[in-house]
Design a protein around this nucleic acid. Structure first.
Length: 552
RNA sequence: CGGGACGUAGCCCAGUCUGGUAGGGCGCCUGGUUCGGAUCCAGGAGGUCGCAGGUUCAAAUCCUGCCGUCCCGACCA
């Protein structure tokens, strides 16, 4: 069971606890709390020894309506989520605040993978080039974006290594060594890793040359089991996106031309960003026996025959963070759903004199001490999760702090001043006005503490509801090509549900003329109820509508 | 990889056309004043102008190449 102490040691200065000067002062611990409560002069100087940049931001965030791509860049910079690596093309540095969100994503997903029977493992970063070429479609799909290691140890390698763009091949090789009998199946694995794809155009989080992800790889005795696994994990992704990220998604199947290179079929979840564009947020592939045959992954059946395994693979990446930003953030900066927020509550002390300062800080510490013991673990979680609370005792004007924490997306802000102490109350402001709270609320301290869980839950629900409303509002059923052209005029995008004749030619034509693509063929219950109709381009018969949108 | 924009102090940018001692704002440091939505005053630190060549008495500025960023395409599970 994790000790709740980590919640208590976090501070605005805690982002770089490696600072040696800081450690010497504090005896090796990064504990701002007691320090803050002592009778120090009003102008704290300890923070000046940190290299952190809290309070240094303050740059402009371009309004979404003015320039959406610029807004996206601005939010990432101002929230200090990440920055371009500069020295390595297309790569990024995920900064502490961004990485903390990724860690939360990891923990949530990892728990769900384990609950569905998967075990984590780790495979090599480098893959022999010959492996990649063993599956015909796979090599065709990935060859253009491979980075290759040709020299090592001062010598040219006999066979170059490819830096993994994905690990089906190397894992296929090991599966062939590990699987002998039907008793070895199913083999259910996952790895958390970095991969590299030399993309022509990169965007922070959405498509970077190197990115972090998880890739699940499983082997099964028959196709049906594999297909069930594909659906199971797509379900995990969909639930995670909606329950944890508060990001509604459409679950569906990719068309032939959009599927994973080497798969029989690819399933996906597609989310809508605030500009109406789609983001492929996760995929789950039915690999059939393609890799089983390429890497000779055979097993003996109960009847004694030798058969190739049926494999699946599924993954989500740091792209999810981009999706999170473009789902919830606003013109004031990042907005984080409580279940992924590294910090849930920030307490901003308000004071004038030294006397007020010490009284307010003491009260803030008391409130924090109560809050950090509150268990906010999700239902059935295998770990305990506690409220993360920060007291912002920086020497800045309160208003400046408000802007700062809003940019970082902290869900709840508490203002605590002398007036509040007199009335035993706190001033609460939610990051986004919703049912969880509107404007500044003045409520008794005890009530705030007693209801914080409910408040966060409501906030989480409100974000999902708002995103669902947006998805509904920008989803349209289109029946004529004229309507279609109008919907995708200029840079616009919506989720267009249209009939399609099922041919690759029509799909290509739609893309050529509008740059919109078929995002998926929806699964039952996703999108409009299936009803036959006529293809929006050719007028040929169609069994159901498909989802078409511009995509990131 | 094509088209466009760009790279000057931690951040945002002016200066480049028309070559001549590197500037501003924010942030940072010191002191004071303030503190419930981005205080104010005074003083101060910080830059081989993305990198490498070239032209020139002289290059942030002109020329060539390279690297990187952003946007639009092509490409992309």
């Amino acid at each position: 069971m994790p000790d709740p102490t980590p919640a208590a040691v976090q501070s605005v200065h805690g982002r770089d606890c490696a600072n040696s000067a800081h450690h010497s002062v504090l005896g090796g611990a990064c504990l701002p709390g007691p320090r803050s409560a002592s009778s120090r002069p009003m102008k704290p100087k300890a923070s000046s020894e940190h290299e952190d940049q809290v309070g240094k931001a303050g740059g402009k965030i371009t309004p979404r309506a003015e320039d959406y791509p610029q807004w996206y860049q601005d939010v990432i910079r101002e929230a200090e989520m990440a920055e371009p690596a500069k020295v390595v093309k297309g790569c990024m540095v995920i900064k502490p605040h961004g990485y903390a969100v990724w860690e939360k994503i990891q923990r949530e997903l990892d728990g769900r993978f384990k609950a569905t029977g998967h075990k984590n493992a780790y495979f090599p970063l480098l893959i022999p080039q010959s492996f990649i070429t063993k599956e015909a479609e796979h090599v065709e799909g990935f060859a253009p974006e491979l980075a290759v290691v040709t020299h090592a140890g001062g010598e040219k390698l006999d066979e170059p290594y490819v830096i993994r763009p994905t690990s089906e091949t190397v894992i296929g090789y090991f599966f062939s060594r590990w699987v002998d009998s039907y008793r070895d199946l199913p083999l259910l694995m996952n790895q958390w890793a970095n991969v590299m794809r030399w993309e022509k155009r990169t965007r922070m989080f959405l498509r970077t040359t190197e990115f972090l992800w998880q890739e699940g790889h499983t082997a099964h005795a028959n196709h049906q089991e594999a297909q069930e696994e594909v659906q199971r994990m797509l379900g995990v992704y969909g639930d995670f996106a909606e329950e944890v990220m508060a990001m509604p998604v459409i679950r569906g199947v990719k068309t032939e031309s959009e599927k994973f290179a080497g798969a029989l079929q690819s399933s996906c979840i597609e989310a809508m960003m605030q500009d109406g564009k789609a983001l492929q947020a996760g995929t789950s592939h039915d690999l059939g026996q393609n890799f089983g045959k390429a890497f000779n992954v055979q097993f003996q059946t109960q009847a004694g025959n030798r058969e190739y395994v049926w494999q699946t693979s599924w993954g989500v990446s740091t792209r999810l963070i981009g999706g999170l930003i473009m789902t919830h953030a606003d013109d004031a900066g990042l907005v984080l759903p409580p279940r992924l927020a590294p910090i849930h509550v920030v307490i901003v002390p308000i004071f004038r004199s030294d006397d007020e300062r010490s009284r307010v800080m003491a009260a803030a510490e008391r409130i924090k001490a109560e809050l950090v013991d509150i268990d906010i673990s999700p239902p059935r979680a295998r770990y305990r999760d506690f409220l993360e609370v920060v007291i912002d005792d920086r020497d800045m004007k309160p208003g400046a702090k408000f802007y700062d924490w809003e940019r970082r997306g902290v869900p709840v802000r508490v203002e605590l001043g002398p007036k509040d102490l007199e009335k035993d109350q706190v001033c609460v402001k939610m990051r986004v006005d919703s049912e969880a709270g509107k404007g500044k609320e003045f409520i008794p301290q005890a009530q705030f503490i007693a209801t914080i869980r409910e408040r966060l839950a409501k906030f989480q629900d409100a974000l999902l509801a708002a995103a669902r409303a947006r998805l509904a509002a920008r989803s349209v059923e289109l029946n004529t090509w004229d309507e279609f052209l109008k919907t995708f005029a200029g840079e616009q995008s919506s989720f267009a549900w249209c009939h399609w004749d099922g041919t690759r030619e029509t799909e290509a034509r739609i893309k050529e003329q509008t740059r919109a693509t078929i995002r998926c063929i929806p699964l039952p219950g996703q999108g409009p109820a299936p009803e036959p109709g006529q293809c929006i381009v050719t007028g040929k018969p169609s069994a159901q509508r498909v989802l078409i949108a511009r995509a990131y």
